[in-house]
Design a protein around this nucleic acid. Structure first.
Lengths: 190, 190
DNA sequence: CTTGTCTATGCAACGAGTTGCATAGCAGGA
DNA sequence: TCCTGCTATGCAACTCGTTGCATAGACAAG
């Protein structure tokens, strides 16, 4: 149920349309939450009919009207209430780990390419995160001093950076293990 | 759709009932995947009717019969096929990060307790992972040398350990930031 | 001129995951 | 004695998330 709250946070940071929100979820919000435009439109519609959001319809030429949402009083109050409720620590879901463990019943070496592909995706994501950090928080064009909201955005981004670095290092460990098993052990054929 | 595959991996490692699988998902499989008994029973039923699993009914006294599942030929073949298909790198879902960023619109200091609670949960999980590593892989009672399956289980567990260590360190960073904002900045009231 | 991409919204169907409840005997502690 | 918890399975109702599709004009590249 945190998608609602992620949307509220994003709209408090800056009002916007469903389409704009979807693009933010590909960028900065995407550091810690993903959502497709479908989910976003559905949840926005529900929140609007629950009176959690204010809407302003902006007519446009040659394209559908833009509906700009903002988090009005009730939405902001709902967010504040949620912030004071305890939540459960995350549970893990890691498909690649399922594959790694499953490789015992196939050829471990055949997974090497897949692991390398994932590692490259994480390297790319790390590069994007570092570029964003430089642009928004630590580079010469960044505002100084940062306000509280920016400090909090920065510490969340540092979490994403740490996550990617850790994952890249772990996948090195996985690759070393797969290479070692490929040399010493034939595929399991039990 | 990876729950099916996680179940297949677990059943290949050792056949068992739905109930036993549910408990494995609280332990070793839980390093990288969680599932409740409801999900497991439902998926087991579907896989059984699809002929992916072999079932053996074991009568018991004073409790319902146990249905012991094992991954027969078709199930194993399906797993092998999935292992050779590429999958998408994980997308992140981190409720606590939503809260941290939302704290800009509330009192940052009021989140400190919640973050500390999460950090403690991660410390506990790290302790469980380290105890499991000692028991199964690096301690005096562990088998030596490890076979390929055990090596792969170990590298997955090392991933969990690295994840928990990274998270604990990041939450230190978050706490430092929240304390700093609590001292210097009043809650946003815009 | 056609193909593709971007803006902007939305429906429909499906599968995945959560929560509450139900059955039912057996064992152990307050 | 009562209450809690363990083994063992399962139904029902719900929300969340994904995928495919549809509309429709603007604009750029080939």
């Amino acid at each position: 149920m945190a998608l609602e709250h992620a949307i509220l946070v994003s709209l408090l940071e800056k009002p916007g349309s469903g389409y704009e929100l979807a693009r933010r979820f590909e960028r900065s919000i995407g550091y810690f939450w993903t959502a497709t435009h479908q989910q976003i439109y559905r949840v926005l519609g529900r929140m609007e009919s629950d009176g959690m959001l204010a809407v302003r319809t902006i007519p446009q030429q040659g394209r559908p009207d833009k509906k700009e949402y903002s988090a009005a009083g009730p939405g902001r109050a709902a967010l504040a209430q949620w912030l004071h409720e305890p939540i459960e620590p995350e549970s893990l879901r890691h498909d690649l780990a399922v594959k790694i463990r499953g490789a015992a019943f196939d050829d471990p070496a055949s997974l090497i390419r897949e692991v390398e592909r994932h590692q490259q995706a994480h390297r790319d994501r790390l590069a994007r995160f570092l570029a964003g950090e430089l642009r928004d928080f630590t580079g010469p064009d960044a505002p100084a001093p940062l306000d509280a909201g920016q400090e909090l955005q920065h510490v969340v981004l540092r979490g994403g950076i740490a996550q990617e670095r850790m994952t890249i290092a772990w996948l090195d460990d996985v690759l070393t293990t797969l290479h070692r098993l490929g040399r010493s052990a034939p595929p399991a054929t039990d």
